[in-house]
Structure formats: C-alpha cells, structure tokens
C-alpha cells in the first residue's frame, strides 16, 4: 500500500492550508483545525508535522531540529518521515533549508525571506495557566483584555526580582494578539520580531494553528521599569567559542564536571575549527 504524498490525504491538507491562510491573515490569532491522528504520540510534534505536510513540495529542502540539535531522536525521525513520504531532500544546514521544523529553538543564523519556520507547540493558549475557562480566555482575546497576563509578570518580579521567564515568555503580535511563542527560551524571543521568514505554529493535541507573517512586530511583554531581559549562560561555547549563542549545559562526569556548548548544533559545526 502507498501513502498519500507527505502522508496526509489531500482534503486534510487543504483544510490545514485554509487554517494557515486565516492564521496568517490574523497574526497571533489561534485558528482551530481538525488535527488528525498521526503515526506518533501527542507531544512529539503532531501539530508541526501536519503543518509541514501541508506546505511541503518536492523541491523543498527540510531541516528538523529538536532543542536546537539536528541529531536527536525526534529530529532524525521526523526528517526521515518526510524523506520517505514526501521524497524531499533534507539538510542540517539552516541556510540551505526552505522549511525548518523546530521544537523549542530558533536557529542562531538569521532566517531569510522565503524560508518557513514551523514550530511544534504543546500549549497554544498563553492564558491557560491564568484563566481555566476556554470560553473566557477566547473572550479575553476578542476584547484584547490582557491585564491578567501583566499580573503574572508582576508576580514574577515580586517573587523572583526579574520579569523574564526562562522560556515561553508571552509576546504581543502586531500590537493586538497575545501569543505563546511555544517553549523557546526567552533568548530567542527577539529573533521573532520582524523576522523575514514566515513563522507557523501547530498544536496537534490542542488542535490550533497560528502564525506570524514575515516582518511582523513581536514584542515580549514587560514593564516600563523592568524591561524584558532574556537570560544566557555567561560562558563561551566549549566547542566553537561563541559568546553570542544560546548554550546547553552538559554534565560530563559524576564529579561535577560540566561544559557549556551551543544548543544550535549546525551553528556550532559551522564555526568550529
């Protein structure tokens, strides 16, 4: 038996493309869609895979990263999945890719016009921890009533003395919709602002798609007297020496040994001697 091109049947892909068009037309607004069962569990990127499957074509070059790395199980499996079902070329080089599916990172290399960044999103609703009723949070979005989110930031500063959460820091898109950037580190938030590439977000379990069109303003929430201030480990990369990339801390032995290396493996390899 043979599968449809890129696994999903054509009707489903059209449905998802319609949702994408709507999402692009209303930057940051969550569009419901009929997410399908995928051959991998929820939480492994079913939303992102459905987006990628709906936009991919034979001439595309696909890169998949998980926490910045091209060689983790999730990234390898998804890359192979599309190589088999869509017959596309795959790459680990950010510059060569036309579609980059990502979990929890934005590549260090600045993305170019024409590239598409597909995020895997576990929880699309930025207000979910604050407002348990879905109907009410939908209404809050409709009325742009976001005081509640500011209260959470106030609590962060009151308790921890700083406004930036380490990851998943909420953003305002185009001055209108509050959006969850998916669990990327706050360090990556500024890269979303006026990015030349198209950013698509897919949440499979929650059945939501949202998008940030190219060159759209994305502002991280903060206070006037406590500006948004993303965190980066204060070390150079142990492999390539980069001082401006996001780092992973790796425990190397049982005696407290550790090293800091670039989380973006492609970026690190390009720079390494």
């Amino acid at each position: 038996m043979t599968y449809s091109y890129a696994f999903l049947d054509e009707a489903t892909k059209r449905m998802i493309r319609r949702a994408i068009l709507k999402a692009v037309a209303i930057p940051g607004h969550q569009v419901p869609f009929g997410a399908r069962e995928m051959p991998l569990p929820y939480g492994w990127g079913t939303g992102g895979i459905q987006l990628t499957a709906s936009i991919i074509g034979r001439s595309d070059v696909l890169k998949v990263i998980d926490q910045g790395a091209d060689d983790t199980t999730n990234a390898v499996s998804i890359r192979r999945f599309f190589a088999r079902t869509a017959g596309v070329a795959t790459t680990t080089h950010t510059a060569e890719a036309t579609i980059i599916q990502t979990r929890h990172r934005i590549p260090e290399r600045a993305l170019q016009p024409g590239q598409i960044l597909v995020y895997q999103v576990p929880m699309p609703e930025p207000l979910s921890r604050l407002e348990p009723r879905v109907v009410e949070s939908t209404r809050l979005h409709a009325l742009a009533d976001y005081g509640l989110m500011q209260v959470r930031l106030y609590e962060d500063i009151a308790r921890h003395g700083r406004s930036a959460s380490a990851y998943n820091h909420p953003v305002m898109v185009n001055g209108r919709y509050l959006m969850s950037p998916s669990p990327i580190p706050s360090f990556d938030n500024p890269k979303m602002d006026r990015m030349p590439a198209l950013q698509l977000f897919g949440a499979g379990r929650e059945k939501r798609i949202y998008a940030v069109p190219p060159h759209t303003s994305v502002r991280s929430l903060d206070f006037d007297d406590h500006p948004f201030n993303p965190i980066r480990a204060p070390h150079p990369c142990a492999i390539c020496g980069a001082t401006d990339s996001y780092l992973d801390e790796i425990v190397t032995d049982d005696a407290g040994g550790r090293m800091f290396v670039c989380s973006d493996t492609d970026h690190c390899e390009e720079r390494a001697p």
């Binding site: 009533d145 005081g147 509640l148 500011q150 209260v151 106030y154 609590e155 500063i157 009151a158 406004s163 903060d222 206070f223 006037d224 007297d225 406590h226």
Partner: peptide, 16 residues
C-alpha cells in the same frame, strides 16, 4: 500586591 494592581494593569499601567 498583584490583586490590588490588577485593575491598574488592566487599564494599561505598565510601570511596576
């Protein structure tokens, strides 16, 4: 403090 500040923030006050 957050409880008292909520209405202020809902009105657009952004100065901690």
């Amino acid at each position: 403090g957050g409880n008292i500040g909520e209405r202020l923030m809902a009105q657009g006050n952004r100065h901690y």
